[in-house]
Amino acid sequence: MARSLLIISRQAPWKGPSAREALDIALAGGAFDLPLGMLFLDDGVFQLQAEQQPAVLEQKNLAANLQALPMFGVDELFVCAHSLAARGLDLCHLALPAEPLDAPALRALIARFDEVITL
């Protein structure tokens, strides 16, 4: 049984390659059927915001890419409720469904996975 991996993505899509790298890990792992989860934390929640227009900055559409995660077998998508609220975001602002978790649920989530990486 492969070890499960939780990827915590906590940078905005515009802040360097971090968000893209976290997604690449998830897509590659998903393509190989690894048990993966992804948590959006801190500015990482901005990756999920709907109606972004990265083409204006000649960047790829990360939010569109993220929506492919379930197709790659990555169904466990979580978002930190505190990070959302602190940034004036609500679930209805998100481009893809992610489960909001409060602090106790986040602690349980991290404990559940075999490996955790924070980007």
Partner: peptide
């Protein structure tokens, strides 16, 4: 399962530490 969290960035420059303290389990270090 217990986790050792490792932080290397200044707490005055970003919120890694604040977020980590929120996520820290009672058996985590």
């Amino acid at each position: 399962m217990t986790t050792l969290h490792v932080i290397a960035h200044s707490p005055f420059a970003d919120n890694r530490l604040a977020s980590c303290l929120r996520l820290l389990g009672i058996e985590d270090a």
